[in-house]
């Protein structure tokens, strides 16, 4: 897989994922506890608020900050990954959940892939056998996966980062598990994401290519950031316009080869185009949250928020990013 083969400056592959967690803990002393599990990687926060629903985000490893870097105030209470590109096992999810639950329940957030779904679903069952309530939201923001099929068949990309902070804000508001689930599910219903990779040799922009080498769905000539923004907005808003009156939250995820400055250029192009079309914006973030694509390009997420969701959308800071 590309995500593994591209890694070069390492000592040996088996130690990489453990070093990520140890490194995160070293940079932020007293913030985390690492739980040892032979086949998964688990980090949870110290000093959590006992009176709230706990958020556990999980997925394949090695594409950080999602997921290794997403535990923190305003974000997830625990993050769990499996091996590179592999879901963590259900026992690891269950084990950290029962460790951090203080009676208000657990919300699992993961992208909608078979391995992630199966293991999170099993964790929910194992917890219920112990009387711990939990639920999961399967994030399906990628508009180019499972084309022509219902939204719940789609996979997830970097939109999960936004859903994590929404779930976290709702939980910190003291809401019940049922309410946090409902709000997070609503956010998933109203978020859409498009990945666009640059083909520099042919000067093309390729929409919807998968990070494991799946072919792009739509290819267009690259002209400018403005044109890229316009094209992305058309594809995404075509699905979101049914949510009338929604105000837009905007996120640009830089791929590995996209420059810091380009991220902001695309962000401002998106802002201008959206405003010109009459959409009202409530906030935005730019960063390298999801490091899956070894390409130049970006992943653009738009969320059409109603007034309830808007309450829970505010900047959240990880150690090395803001979303």
């Amino acid at each position: 897989m590309r995500v593994i083969s591209i890694m070069k400056i390492i000592n040996n592959k088996e130690e990489v994922l453990g070093e990520v967690l140890e490194g995160i803990m070293f940079t932020q002393p007293d913030a985390y506890i690492r739980m040892i599990n032979e086949f998964s990687y688990i980090l949870y926060r110290k000093n959590m608020d006992d009176k709230k629903v706990k958020i556990i985000a999980s997925g394949g490893a090695g594409r950080g900050p999602l997921f290794e870097g997403f535990a923190g105030e305003g974000l997830a209470d625990a993050v769990v990954t499996g091996d590179f590109n592999c879901a963590p096992n259900a026992y690891a999810l269950y084990d950290v959940a029962r460790t951090i639950d203080r009676g208000r329940g657990i919300l699992f957030l993961t992208n909608n892939y078979a391995g992630d779904y199966l293991n999170n679903d099993m964790a929910v069952e194992l917890l219920s056998k112990e009387g711990i309530s939990s639920g999961m939201v399967l994030v399906s923001d990628d508009i180019f996966s499972a084309r022509g099929e219902p939204k719940d068949k789609r996979g997830g990309l970097s939109g999960i980062g936004i859903l994590i902070k929404i779930a976290s804000a709702a939980a910190e508001d003291g809401l019940s598990l049922e309410e946090v689930l409902r709000i997070t599910q609503k956010a998933n219903d109203r978020i859409r994401t498009a990945a666009v990779c640059m083909n520099d040799d042919l000067d093309l922009m390729e929409f919807g290519a998968g990070f494991s080498g799946e072919a792009p769905v739509i290819t267009e000539k690259f002209q400018s950031a403005d044109r890229l923004a316009e094209s992305a907005i058309e594809k995404i808003m075509g699905e979101l316009d049914s949510y009338q009156g929604g105000r837009i939250y905007l996120n640009v995820n830089r791929m590995r080869q996209m420059m810091y400055v380009e991220g902001y250029v695309v962000l401002m192009s998106l802002k201008r185009k959206l405003e010109k079309k009459g959409y009202s914006l409530i906030g935005a973030s730019v960063g390298g949250y999801y490091d899956a694509y070894d390409a130049n390009g970006c992943i653009i997420s738009l969320l059409s928020a109603d007034s309830e969701l808007e309450k829970y959308i505010k900047p959240a800071k990880g150690y090395d990013f803001t979303i």
């Binding site: 032979e38 879901a87 096992n89 259900a90 026992y91 293991n119």
Partner: peptide
């Protein structure tokens, strides 16, 4: 479930 991971761990578990 604990030792297998992936889909098989869940299915056979």
């Amino acid at each position: 479930v604990k030792s297998m991971g992936g889909a098989s761990g869940v299915i056979f578990g």
